[in-house]
Nucleic acid binder design. Structure first.
Lengths: 225, 225
DNA sequence: GATTTATGAATGAAGG
DNA sequence: CCTTCATTCATAAATC
């Protein structure tokens, strides 16, 4: 749609508010020259649809929250928390064919959270003894081995380091179309969505540190009522 | 900000899709006198980006709610709930599933050509220095980052390898039940079953794999079917 | 425009 | 630790 096309034109622009103002003037000033106020739709249907889609995802997350609460409070240490009617295929096909099992460990949400917490506490790679403890703890929340834990810390640290390297080194936002990337993300030619800018726009920051954005939150409240 | 002001002008409207459509017609019909329908860009890029940020904030809030809930419901062994310091990329759930859209890099034709040429020269994964050079070169032909280049080579090599395996099934294996992974076969994700509770405890999976998502704003009606 | 395919990206694991 | 590879997931692009 038109917005996408324009996005192309703005590949190298900066996402500053000044431009927002300018463009807003354009919108308001288009059409006839009379100074009269007419009502324009402020979002296209497609845009609204995108919005709706995303919001519905969050809605579902909230729903899942409820489900999870029920599950966890009713049988907390059950091996499998059944969320809704997830596709939890029992392990067999009708033909008795070999089914490929997931061959690598995948941390459960709870495990991940715990791991992250430990990681954030700042100690480096845990000692072997520590690993054992952690593994023991985590095994309450799913299959896990010491090797898994060890690898996880190794990889987590590497990831952290990498991110820092990419985020830190250049501060040169000076001139020409510095479409600076955040760690991994690329946006480039966005067709459906808006360019995700650098880490400055991390919602965490916005949410907990940037009062301005925070105050804008109620917009969505309006939308969803 | 501007956009909010516009919102003010429309305070009387409801946020229903039908009305969106109607208003769209209005937009098309106003302005200059020609009877043709023209479309104006109704949100500036900056405005849309702000919106995106807001959504992103909600994404984070939802995620943290989920995390918090997990903590509260399974915290027997946990000291306290730390919401703020969770590792979480703003745009992703803790499981790495993307919530709000983040565009992924797509190589331009020229970039692709160059990359292929370098790849064909046979050297393996370029060194970091090489990566930098390549990235630098390619950036003349479009948005790109070193990570993109690195990933590209990784994936390209893997692809090459896969193809070789497939086109060289020399040794006639006992064809009975050994359906080797064909390149398209990798989508059989629903075959994850495993005795672990992994998949079952990840609400996010459900969220994003549910095809019903996307059209409705029904908050808690979402899963009732 | 729904479904399928190709591929960018994320990450667990292995090797050094 | 670092690098590399294998696997997986999400999605852009292609196809129907």
């Amino acid at each position: 749609m038109e917005w996408e096309k324009q996005e192309q034109h703005h590949h190298h622009r900066h996402h500053h508010q000044q431009e927002e103002l300018e463009q807003n003037v354009n919108v308001g000033g288009n059409g006839n020259g009379n100074g009269g106020v007419f009502y324009v739709k402020v979002m296209t249907d497609a845009q609204v649809e995108i919005l709706r889609k995303q919001i519905s995802v969050y809605a579902t997350i909230c729903e899942q929250l409820v489900e999870m609460h029920k599950s966890l409070t009713s049988h907390q240490d059950l091996a499998g928390v059944r969320l809704g009617n997830l596709y939890c295929d029992p392990l067999m096909t009708s033909t008795g064919h070999k089914i490929s099992a997931r061959q690598r460990w995948t941390p459960t949400a709870v495990q991940l959270q715990i791991l992250e917490r430990i990681f954030d506490q700042g100690y480096g790679t845990p000692s072997k003894q520590k690993i054992k403890e952690i593994t023991s703890d985590l095994s309450q929340h799913g299959q896990i081995s010491e090797t898994n834990v060890y690898n996880w810390f190794q990889n987590r640290r590497a990831q952290s380091k990498r991110k820092q390297l990419i985020t830190t080194p250049n501060n040169a936002e000076s001139e020409v179309a510095t479409e600076v990337e955040s760690p991994k993300d690329q946006k480039t030619k966005s067709e459906n969505f808006l360019p995700q800018q650098n880490s400055a726009s991390r919602p965490e920051d916005l949410c907990f540190q940037n009062p301005e954005i925070g105050s804008r939150l109620h917009f969505l409240d309006q939308q969803t009522h």
